[in-house]
Design a protein around this nucleic acid. Sequence first.
DNA 1: CTTAAAACCCCCTAAACGGGGGATAATTTG
DNA 2: CAAATTATCCCCCGTTTAGGGGGTTTTAAG
Lengths: 210, 210
Amino acid sequence: MISIGIIEDNDVLRSSLQLLFENSGRFQVAFSLHDARNLLAETELHMPRLLLMDIDMPGINGIDAVKLVKKDFPTVDIIMFTVFEDDEKIFRSVMAGASGYLLKKIPPEKLLEALDDFVQGGAPMTGSIATRVLEMFRKQTQQTAATFNLSARELEILTSLSSGKTYRLIAGERFLSVETVRSHVKNIYEKLHVHSKAEAVAKAFREKLI
Amino acid sequence: MISIGIIEDNDVLRSSLQLLFENSGRFQVAFSLHDARNLLAETELHMPRLLLMDIDMPGINGIDAVKLVKKDFPTVDIIMFTVFEDDEKIFRSVMAGASGYLLKKIPPEKLLEALDDFVQGGAPMTGSIATRVLEMFRKQTQQTAATFNLSARELEILTSLSSGKTYRLIAGERFLSVETVRSHVKNIYEKLHVHSKAEAVAKAFREKLI
DNA sequence: CTTAAAACCCCCTAAACGGGGGATAATTTG
DNA sequence: CAAATTATCCCCCGTTTAGGGGGTTTTAAG
């Protein structure tokens, strides 16, 4: 029996899902929530094998919820279950740590099959290939500015540098003195371990800071 | 009936595939080849709906074959069918223009299902989501230096600029005079429509020139 | 064979940059 | 609350860059 948690704000759909799982003989509903408020507590209590997570929900949205759960319970796999088909949402879900992404238009039997498949080591999107694709993406955009502890200001300035702006221009745009910009730049260089604009820009792109 | 072309060097497997398709009632084998030699001619003659393409083959490899076919017959969809599960091969296949990627370990019924699914608008790897993922990748690495007509020398120098080297350093490394480097840089700027090192580096990354 | 590039080289000048120093208020964080 | 960090500001100096000229020779393409 696979233990599953459902987070879905549409009551009718949530009930249907619950029924579907309970009558499948293969799944067991650990909990079923209308929103992500009690999600951490419930997860800790029941420790389900996986979560089926809606994206568009009142309060905390599904993607942020993924981050929260993954932070505290990295072993719980999360499958997004949503009507959104756009790249942005998919991408952000994957980055947040979702292991799969299913569309609500999937037929019930297919849903069970996909989840079953996933638990067997595949990814709901197709066997092992899709898993790799997700991994590739994850690697590609992982680290963020945080890695280098750039401040918001520094990141701003780094972005401006990357568009080829001179210190003077940046100073003008942000109402700073050129000297201030210069010292920010110095700090950026130190944090990134570089010694020139060109290097900083290159690193910013390579490390996906921009 | 979906018309399909098979390119697979393993005779036993190829026969099995042919049998499978012919007895499926849904597929029709347009042609079945041991290697990619006569692929273009056969494709032109039979114009199959899709190709099932092995990667590791004598003579032309599957990935190059994809490029050739896609160049002349962009409407023919190509599904890679292989034992290789590594990112490199997947990535290169997608870049070459393959629409899907299936592993040989897939059970026969699943293969038919996946192809059927694909023809219905999905991607063999999962519904519409995987298709998007492939697209994302494709966009990410498309254009090359050719787009801006950078010469080999110019690309070299652009690369050096990106690592933060000064003109003097580059000149030293490549046994050029600083002035030569400078004029190459001028030409690069003109071609990329930029006016500084930082901008050039940024553009180089954005346009995947580096 | 002419034309057009690519690749090579040179000079000059003003602006921009990198590295070194030092300082103060505000905010975050332990 | 004290310590650390951040954001702000300032000076100096030598180097590097960008943009403006100028040019030759080799290679590729029409």
